[in-house]
């Protein structure tokens, strides 16, 4: 089976150590995590893990079940590229003198829809959001002027569906709880 890029999203209760429990599921199976972001979700108190891997669909399906097996995980999903909208953010630091030397640097920033965050006498910080390829392309361009520092965030993603996939699950869980307390 062919390896593809998949974005895994997992929703969980807040629990110390869960991040560790989730990452060891990947390391144990020798799966490289390309990017990982932990954040809040649209549902209060529920955390969202966004993990990007290159793997076969079969392996990703197995990993999803292992993630869901963790007691504090509510639900996990995986999506191929087509099903999600995602972004990453990159920051670049270049010497300010290069900005002053010619208009080339400024032109590059404009062409890439990047923006300047801070200018000091010594350095200028540029920000770009986009897909990894886009932020990488800008890095190559900027590096002609000498990039002093570069950093890129992990991926954040939302699905093309209308609502958070988790809401159905939560409703079912609440119904189940009521069933249990009635019995």
């Amino acid at each position: 089976m062919e390896q593809k890029e998949f974005t895994i999203t997992a929703f969980s209760e807040n629990h110390i150590g869960l991040l560790n429990r989730i990452t060891i599921i990947f390391t144990r199976r020798h799966i490289n995590i390309e990017s990982l972001t932990v954040s809040g979700s649209s549902i209060p108190g529920i955390h969202k893990f966004t993990i990007v891997v290159r793997e076969t669909q079969e392996k990703v399906e197995k990993v999803i079940k292992q993630i869901e097996k963790q007691v504090e995980v509510l639900k996990a999903f995986y999506h191929p590229e087509e099903e999600i909208i995602h972004q990453e953010i990159a920051l670049y630091k270049v010497p300010t003198e290069k900005l002053l030397d010619s208009t080339d640097l400024e032109k590059t920033i404009r062409e890439h829809n990047a923006r300047i965050l801070e200018v000091t006498k010594d350095y200028t910080v540029i920000e770009k959001t986009g897909h990894k390829e886009e932020t990488s392309r800008l890095f190559e361009k900027l590096n002609n002027f000498g990039v002093l520092q570069f950093t890129r965030s992990g991926r954040i993603a939302i699905t093309k569906l209308n609502k958070e996939l988790l809401t159905d699950y939560l409703r079912e869980a609440d119904e189940l709880k009521q069933e249990i307390s009635i019995n």
């Binding site: 969980s12 209760e13 007691v71 504090e72 995980v73 509510l74 939560l170 869980a173 609440d174 189940l176 709880k177 249990i180 307390s181």
Partner: peptide
């Protein structure tokens, strides 16, 4: 304990 929301 009889129920944990995230655990089925």
């Amino acid at each position: 304990c009889k129920h944990i929301r995230s655990y089925l």
